[in-house]
Design a protein around this nucleic acid. Structure first.
Lengths: 152, 152
DNA sequence: TACATACATTTGTATATACAATTATTGTAG
DNA sequence: CTACAATAATTGTATATACAAATGTATGTA
């Protein structure tokens, strides 16, 4: 991906601006490839993320706030995201008995099985996307991304 | 940004998967900061991108297909994106006389003036986001991003 | 107890986006 | 010259997302 070709700017862009655009373009590509990889499973990236988080709980329930904190996007979606996953029988939702304001969400057996298939499809896509980046470069890339000041 | 904290996974994630998630999280942050920076100008990231591309044309018109190729997102939006920019008097739209199927889009004087202010606000945001990444690191980061296999 | 406040989630609504179908124009094979 | 395909943009529609308001539940305190 050559960011200069896409931008075709005559005026030289600040290195910072170029980097940000570069990251945006990379994200767009990742997003498209991910959507494609998940299409056979009829789930969105967000739904996949919810399943992955729930599996990471190892049987423990997660409530909506927890999901939301760990997720990339915003609260208002989370209720409806979970609604969709319930329809597919990938997760279960129960009211927390200790604190009836809270909702506990679990991944189902079917959800776990499907998630495994999804994760495999994702890994194939990820390896293809990163096939020209060796391990050392990946480590460097992650280190550099860690340096970004992403606080609010 | 520490991706491990957010993921809280017990099982070690493949380095590829971790990198992809890392890029997603970084993008989410960039996206939020950008939306914030552009809020005073009442334009979306996409609208800002259209303006930037049009200015890069240096007076030459761009048709919708050109815009779409250079933009991050899809055709169907472009018509309506331009609609919004016309409402704000930031761009003009005329039918191409040589090929009446084509639509020519120009940035207006007002559009250019506003774009300058937007670009300044964006640069402030970008420098803040990248304040802990020195020039050498930025160059390395861009080189690594170039290695990603983002073809279709 | 009654009230205000905080918390957790849900719902309403407006806007954005993705995908498919449609319209209008141009190019070209027969 | 007509019919058909290709191109460029627009429109319709279903789904997704962002933001604000509303609902239901719990907690602190006078």
């Amino acid at each position: 991906m050559d960011v200069n070709k896409i931008l075709k700017s005559n005026k030289p862009l600040a290195l910072e601006s170029k980097t940000i655009i570069h990251l945006m373009l990379v994200h767009q590509s990742i997003s498209e490839h991910t959507t494609e990889a998940l299409k056979p499973f009829d789930v969105s990236i967000q739904q996949f993320n919810v399943l992955r988080i729930l599996k990471g709980q190892n049987g423990k329930a997660a409530n909506l706030s927890t999901l939301n904190d760990r997720m990339v996007s915003k609260m208002s979606n989370t209720t409806r995201l979970v609604d969709k996953l319930i329809l597919k029988d990938f997760v279960k939702r129960t009211v927390c008995e200790e604190n009836r304001r809270k909702i506990e969400i679990f991944i189902t057996k079917k959800g776990k099985e499907e998630l495994l298939k999804m994760s495999n499809a994702m890994l194939v896509m990820e390896k293809e996307l990163l096939k020209d980046v060796d391990t050392e470069d990946l480590i460097t890339l992650n280190k550099l991304l860690d340096k970004l000041n992403t606080d609010k």
